[in-house]
């Protein structure tokens, strides 16, 4: 206990004494945490966005030609009773054709040339938000496809899947880049701590001569590394938060980020704590490596 107080005090003195290199190390670690955190943040928000859009996705239930009023009533009763369904709307044959003509003005002759109205009647179903994950959506679709008088059911979610893939890709790239940067930050810590120990080698030798153990000597350096890691992590996260505010502010001036109306979320408390712990451990590991030779006294 006494020793840890001593280690921390010595470490803080050491860090302050070499404040320029301390600052540089902290910034190096900060940059890697910032970028790693930035990628995690981006992929987290992209996948939120995907969830959001999945929730807003509507489902089309296409009816067979010549469906009877009775069949339709059965379907409507079922939809009304389904707790997952927020609202639904019937779209007749005729209405579908009109929509097509309106949307694709230049092709408005097409249906005519095809003769019969090729557009089936359908239900447009909005699903309830909360439990609207990918799998519930699928199970709804499967169920509706079994209904009598139903030709097919589909939700246009293929592109949502690709959004998710992008999010996953961003995450993978981020973790890859993050690891690379972490390695360089680790390298910096090792060099800075080695240099610090080298500058104090006379002092270290004296301590060894009067009977200091390896731990007494290495302890302050271990704490120095961990503190640099912690400060670096905190700095990176702080700048990440500032950046997020910046994006939100820019967004408020006019949509820039995928014209997304919802708010952007910061890293989860778990991810934030995780990054801090990782950067602290990285600093610690770097200094353990840097001063490992104290653990083998020279002959």
């Amino acid at each position: 206990m006494m020793n840890w107080i001593y280690f921390v005090r010595e470490a803080l003195i050491g860090l302050w004494r070499a404040r320029t290199s301390t600052l540089l190390t902290v910034l190096t670690i900060g940059v890697s945490v910032y970028l790693l955190g930035g990628f995690l943040l981006l992929s987290e928000n992209l996948s939120h966005l995907g969830d959001e859009w999945t929730r807003q996705a509507t489902v089309q239930i296409f009816l067979e030609d010549g469906t009877t009023e009775k069949t339709r009533q059965t379907i409507e009763a079922d939809l009304a009773a389904d707790p997952g369904v927020f609202s639904f709307r019937y779209r007749s044959h005729q209405e579908a054709l009109e929509t097509f003509s309106r949307v694709f003005d230049s092709l408005s002759d097409l249906p005519d040339s095809l003769g019969d109205n090729p557009f089936p009647a359908s239900y447009e179903v909005a699903l309830r938000g909360e439990d609207q994950g990918r799998s519930t959506l699928q199970s709804h679709l499967e169920r509706w496809r079994q209904f009598e008088g139903v030709e097919g059911a589909q939700a246009d979610i293929a592109w949502l899947d690709s959004l998710r893939n992008i999010a996953r890709g961003v995450q993978t790239a981020g973790i890859g880049l993050g690891l690379l940067l972490a390695a360089s930050a680790l390298f910096t810590v090792i060099n800075v701590i080695s240099l610090a120990a080298h500058l104090r080698r006379d002092e270290i030798e004296i301590m060894q001569l009067v009977g200091a153990t390896a731990t007494w000597i290495a302890g302050p350096y271990w704490v120095e590394g961990a503190v640099q890691g912690l400060l670096g992590g905190a700095t990176g996260l702080m700048f990440l938060k500032f950046s997020l505010w910046g994006v939100e502010w820019a967004q408020a001036q006019g949509p820039v980020f995928l014209s997304f109306s919802g708010t952007l979320s910061f890293l989860t408390p778990g991810a934030t704590a995780g990054l801090l712990i990782v950067s602290t451990l990285m600093g610690f590991a770097g200094s353990v490596f840097a001063v490992r030779h104290f653990l083998r006294l020279s002959a």
Binding site: I206, Q208, V210, G211, A212, T213
Partner: peptide
């Protein structure tokens, strides 16, 4: 690892003092 313990049993006055 035993060397520090040996040295703590020995008081040493160095020719060049070796003070921190």
């Amino acid at each position: 690892w035993r060397i520090p313990f040996l040295r703590r049993r020995i008081g040493i006055v160095f020719q060049d003092f070796r003070l921190l």
